[in-house]
């Protein structure tokens, strides 16, 4: 399993114990994610220019 690490500045702010637990939780979730996507599968958040016009 590839370990995901909490950034150092946040680890400093929250403490080693919390950061370690978060790292473990994130690593398990990242490992478990179903990545069986075709190479050309689009992302769900593709940019839609028409919705980013100036707000009225």
């Amino acid at each position: 399993m590839n370990i995901r690490n909490v950034p150092e500045e946040i680890k400093t702010a929250v403490g080693e114990e919390r950061a370690s637990k978060a790292s473990e939780t994130a690593s398990v979730a990242a490992e478990r994610l179903d990545r069986d996507n075709f190479w050309h599968q689009e992302s769900a958040n593709v940019y839609r220019a028409q919705t980013w016009t100036e707000k009225k």
């Binding site: 995901r4 950034p7 919390r18």
Partner: peptide, 12 residues
């Protein structure tokens, strides 16, 4: 809140 939120800082 912290315990639920923090894993989000570790995802790539």
């Amino acid at each position: 809140t912290l315990s639920r939120l923090l894993p989000g800082t570790a995802f790539s």
